[in-house]
Design a protein around this nucleic acid. Structure first.
Lengths: 174, 174
DNA sequence: TCCTATGTGAAACTGAGTGTCAAGATAGCC
DNA sequence: GGCTATCTTGACACTCAGTTTCACATAGGA
């Protein structure tokens, strides 16, 4: 798997040819599958945004936005509980590789429209999301990131659920 | 200037050779100056983060974090008032060019450490920033982005100060 | 059987970014 | 002035990512 190769050799040391050879396909085929080298690692990331948005839409209508967002993010942190070691290795690889860091940031940035739209729908309006929806969607993702970063820095020792709760709490006091 | 060329021809149509020729220097020199093609546009962006962090440190100690952050961001939106047309052209170019969008995101991501540290110092602790500092720093940047995006979408007609206030307000209600 | 759609590989091509090296310009010193 | 050290610039070669094109092979359907 690409992930293992990157972890052993470092992301930039491994060429697409290496990855293709390791996967037993041609360079062409590899690029047809993943599009870019980064996506060989981050393709798992793609569906995540839509899943969080779905979870958000599934929350009861009476719930306030912040609670709904916080609960929707339980979907996002599930994999970290399922396989902590693997997740830790992944977040470390991404954190320590500028190219992966940037690409992940970009992908996550792409989640915001779906989240903002889901928030807007919750608010009853079928129109496009308002400024506040965008801000809250983005802030919620920041909470997720801050929590995961701290969790990674603690080598997975801190409790991710608590960290995420704390992150949301840090948004509250005025 | 590189900016004009990109706006006329489109970012990907213009090669580094074109830029170098337009600037009257060699390709080598151009790359020595800017490092990447994206940075030919976004180099102005670099110092901005540090300036906002400085503004944050300059706020009175008694002020709460949110007010201090909001006021510090006045520094960041100043250029948009100084030269609205130019700013509008710039934000549009970035918005419509995936590569620039990604690179800008990455640069702004790099502002957070300085902002979080400034917040931590304000809190009196000389230690490294806590989870909450990171979250608040990131959320404030989201407010800036959301405000600027909306301002750009309105073709500069909406008032950026009001938009930024609204963005911060959207963070408040629980 | 023929035909078309789909998956794969080979190869050439463009362009970004890196590294090296050899001029020139420039500043400081004698 | 002349001389040396340092910094800047340009030329060139190189690696590698990503795109495009073409050819081939296989499978399913008429």
């Amino acid at each position: 798997m690409a992930f293992e190769l990157f972890r052993r050799e470092g992301f930039e040391k491994v060429t697409i040819d290496d990855l293709a050879k390791a996967a037993g396909v041609s360079r062409s085929t590899f690029l047809r599958y993943f599009g870019t080298k980064e996506d060989a690692v981050l393709s798992t990331f793609d569906a995540k945004g839509e899943r969080v948005a779905d979870a958000l839409r599934a929350r009861p209508g009476g719930e306030d936005d912040w609670t709904a967002l916080r609960r929707a993010l339980d979907t996002a942190i599930e994999p970290y509980h399922q396989d902590p070691d693997d997740s830790l290795a992944m977040t470390r690889l991404v954190r320590d590789t500028p190219a992966l860091c940037a690409r992940q940031l970009e992908k996550q940035h792409g989640w915001r429209p779906a989240l903002a739209r889901a928030l807007a729908e919750r608010g009853g309006s079928t129109e496009r999301p308002a400024l506040g929806d965008w801000v809250r969607a983005a802030a919620a993702l920041d909470c997720l990131n801050a929590a995961v970063e701290h969790w990674t820095d603690s080598d997975g020792r801190l409790d991710l659920v608590t960290l995420l709760d704390d992150a949301f709490a840090a948004l509250a006091p005025r």
